[in-house]
């Protein structure tokens, strides 16, 4: 029986699915920002890192219950999104893409160093140990189930926000043609700011779920930044549904590849697939742009 149906393979598949939820959530905000403002926030994972620190300080140090602490952290990263756009992106909106990339890259190092200066290099964690769901030989992490569920809800909420609200419609319109919309009297600066705040808040949401599973330290972005960027590119930069699907494709390749071969091979395979897709569809699997 075990030869026909390997319970551990099923576990690896589920692991991949749940890890995909974490990655999908991370890619959501980055994709939204790129889709609308056309600037890649290379420092996105560092904003997530600040969100994780915020929850740590609010909950573990100041004793604020976890849910209000999480909401405050989301508000903080939303404000960071505003500041990043207002202070860094806005002045260079008309500059060549490479300059914008360098500016957000510089911001990445600034945020890492600033966090080191403020809080040192210590690894910190909430010390929370969520219960585990057991079904026969299979175990499910509540933290990951939560991340998966919230990623799906987040995706639906963003979809509804973009399709059912006035500002959401404006955001979509701007992302389709920023010049025409400006000529038609739409205040693009306001739309950009709203998008940055929403993108920053999504980073905060991701932080809420990551902090349940990972230690917080100034360099936590090193583990997530590159793969989040790869997911966004694979899905088609700016395409949220594409990013969502790409997150699960990559996470399953990593998980199944790592299950059958050495763990490192999972990543090798995932990036090999990424390279092949880039050759075949340079615009990504579901790109809205050609």
């Amino acid at each position: 029986m075990e030869q026909i149906f390997d319970i551990y393979l099923l576990e690896a598949l589920i692991n991949g699915l749940l890890f995909g939820g974490v990655l999908a959530l991370l890619s959501l905000g980055l994709n939204l920002i790129f889709g609308v403002i056309d600037v890649v926030w290379i420092c996105y994972a560092e904003i997530v890192m600040f969100g994780m620190y915020a929850i740590y300080w609010l909950h573990a140090v100041y004793g604020i219950p976890i849910v209000p602490a999480a909401l405050l952290a989301i508000a903080l990263t939303g404000a960071m999104g505003f500041l990043v756009h207002y202070l860094v992106i806005s002045p260079i909106l008309g500059s060549p893409p490479i300059n914008q990339l360098l500016a957000t890259g510089g911001l990445l190092f600034f945020l890492q160093s600033f966090a080191t200066l403020l809080w040192g290099i210590e690894f910190r964690n909430l010390g929370l140990r969520l219960p585990v769901l057991q079904w026969g030989e299979l175990y499910f992490s509540y933290a990951r189930l939560l991340a998966f569920g919230i990623a799906v809800i987040g995706m639906i909420a963003i979809y509804l926000f973009l399709t059912r609200t006035y500002i959401g419609t404006a955001i979509r319109a701007i992302s389709q043609d920023r010049e025409i919309m400006t000529l038609m009297g739409v205040d693009s600066r306001r739309v950009y700011l709203v998008t940055s705040v929403v993108g920053g808040s999504l980073a905060g949401l991701a932080a809420c779920l990551l902090v349940l599973q990972y230690d917080v330290h100034p360099f936590v972005g090193l583990s997530f930044g590159p793969i989040t960027f790869v997911i966004c590119v694979l899905g088609g930069l700016g395409n949220m549904i594409g990013g969502f699907i790409a997150a699960f494709i990559l996470s399953e390749i990593i998980s199944i590849g790592g299950f059958y071969a050495e763990l490192e091979w999972g990543y090798v395979l995932a990036f090999a697939v990424f390279i092949v897709v880039m050759f075949i569809r340079p615009e990504g699997i579901l790109s809205k742009k050609s």
Binding site: A12, N15, S223, I254, S255, F259, E262, L263, G266
Partner: peptide, 17 residues
């Protein structure tokens, strides 16, 4: 016997193995 990157964001496949 298996190695992994110290910055790997996920080790669940290793745990399953």
């Amino acid at each position: 016997k298996e190695g992994y990157s110290a910055t790997a964001p996920d080790l669940s496949s290793l745990v399953t193995k």
